[in-house]
């Protein structure tokens, strides 16, 4: 295998936007740098997550074939999901971001699972499903981490020690 040397490669903004515009004209909400000098982060509509993920994974130039990390953070009762994508071959990076608003403090929210695109998403989605109450549609059923816990542990309103 080819040795991947030092390089920090980020997806070209204009190229990416034009490609997305061709396929899903209304999917991209906002595009900006992640952190101080990080890769591009692409805020998208929740409904277009699966289609866009499939495109990013299968595009011959981008080849974003690794979902390195799936993280969820709660900002003022809005759940923000961040999909940290990377290409094995080119080491290019991109972050897909979605926002989900639960109807109630203990309510579920739904989003498509990306397991069909990136199989490594399964344990990450399962964890986020249980910890944040995000139901990933299409995620295979598996055992719970904390079957005795009531509520969603990592939401801001969760009380420590609320075990049955």
């Amino acid at each position: 295998m080819e040795l991947l040397r030092f390089r920090k490669r980020f997806v070209d903004k204009h190229q990416l936007l034009s490609k997305i515009h061709e396929i899903l004209p209304t999917s991209a909400v906002e595009i900006r740098r992640f952190g101080r000098e990080g890769p591009l982060s692409l805020w998208i509509e929740v409904q277009s997550l699966l289609r866009l993920s499939t495109f990013l994974n299968q595009d011959s130039e981008l080849q974003l074939d690794l979902l390195e990390h799936l993280s969820v953070a709660e900002f003022e009762k809005v759940l923000v999901g961040s999909y940290f994508l990377r290409s094995y071959q080119t080491q290019e990076q991109l972050i897909l971001r979605i926002s989900l608003i639960p109807a109630a403090s203990e309510g579920w929210v739904e989003v498509d699972s990306v397991v069909s695109v990136w199989p490594m998403a399964e344990p990450m989605e399962r964890e986020m499903q249980e910890m944040f109450g995000i139901r990933f549609l299409g995620l295979p059923v598996g055992p719970r981490f904390l079957p005795e816990y009531q509520g969603f542990v990592l939401r801001k309103g969760a009380l420590p020690g609320a075990f049955t």
Partner: peptide, 15 residues
């Protein structure tokens, strides 16, 4: 911190 989320390598190994 508002949120800390680690990406541990062992999740992939376990999978």
């Amino acid at each position: 911190p508002l949120r800390v989320h680690f990406r541990p390598p062992s999740v992939g190994h376990l999978m």
